[in-house]
């Protein structure tokens, strides 16, 4: 159907936005939508992001986390931990405890449950894979205060393999993206990330762009 009236204002806004990205030398895909959600597992062109290892001119294109479905296991554990005091309050040794000790035991239990939920969420939220227009990063927080950031230049990527297997992974469209590089770290793995085929495609396109930049002598 032919559009009878298209708002010029909307088109102008769209054009301005596209121009903004083109002026940065990168074309933004229309097929991958920005969810504007900071806790999204597939965060394409995130709105407001500050990453310690990125250069000031580096543009962050994609932030990936493990698929939210991978949180189910600890979610179920947390759920039962929340319910446990109600069940245990009928168990003989707990009932026999003095009331003041019962209260403290329950408080301690819920405190540990809260800590468990916070730790698991932090582990999921901050263990990210980042793709910029120049590099790829694998950020791992191994324990409470130990951080490991691995990076490789886009032009050092040699091979990208997508691994999707199993019922759950096929159903929810998530899997591993294994990247072979020519850098000091020969292998960077994006584990259990959503839409692995799209991730591989974005990396492939960035490699082509990087190659073009190199041929045109525009490399940073």
């Amino acid at each position: 159907m032919v559009d009878v009236y298209v708002s010029g204002k909307t088109n102008l806004k769209k054009e301005k936005k596209e121009q903004k990205y083109k002026s940065r030398g990168k074309v933004k895909h229309k097929i991958y939508k920005n969810t504007h959600n900071p806790i999204a597992a597939f965060n394409y062109y995130p709105d407001r992001v500050k990453f310690i290892a990125a250069d000031s001119k580096e543009r962050i294109i994609l932030i990936l986390r493990r698929h939210p479905i991978t949180n189910i296991r600890w979610g179920v554990v947390a759920f039962f931990m929340l319910l446990a005091p109600f069940v245990l309050s009928f168990v003989e040794p707990v009932v026999a405890l003095p009331t003041n000790f019962q209260l403290i035991v329950f408080l301690i239990w819920y405190m540990i449950t809260l800590a468990f939920i916070i730790e698991e969420f932090l582990g999921w939220y901050f263990n990210v894979n980042i793709i910029t227009d120049e590099r790829i990063f694998d950020v791992d927080f191994v324990n409470l205060i130990y951080r490991e950031i691995t990076d490789a230049n886009i032009d050092q990527i040699q091979d990208v393999t997508v691994q999707v297997g199993g019922v759950l992974r096929t159903m929810f469209n998530y899997g591993d993206v294994v990247i072979q590089t020519a850098s000091e770290v020969p292998r960077i793995e994006f584990l259990a990330v959503p839409r692995p085929d799209d991730v591989a495609r974005i990396i492939r396109e960035l490699r082509i762009e990087e190659e073009q930049e190199r041929l045109e002598g525009r490399t940073r």
Partner: peptide, 18 residues
């Protein structure tokens, strides 16, 4: 206290808005 320190350490590394 370590969790608070850890949170600061993590948010210093990456800021997205949450």
């Amino acid at each position: 206290g370590v969790i608070i320190r850890q949170t600061k350490h993590m948010t210093d590394t990456l800021e997205i808005g949450f």
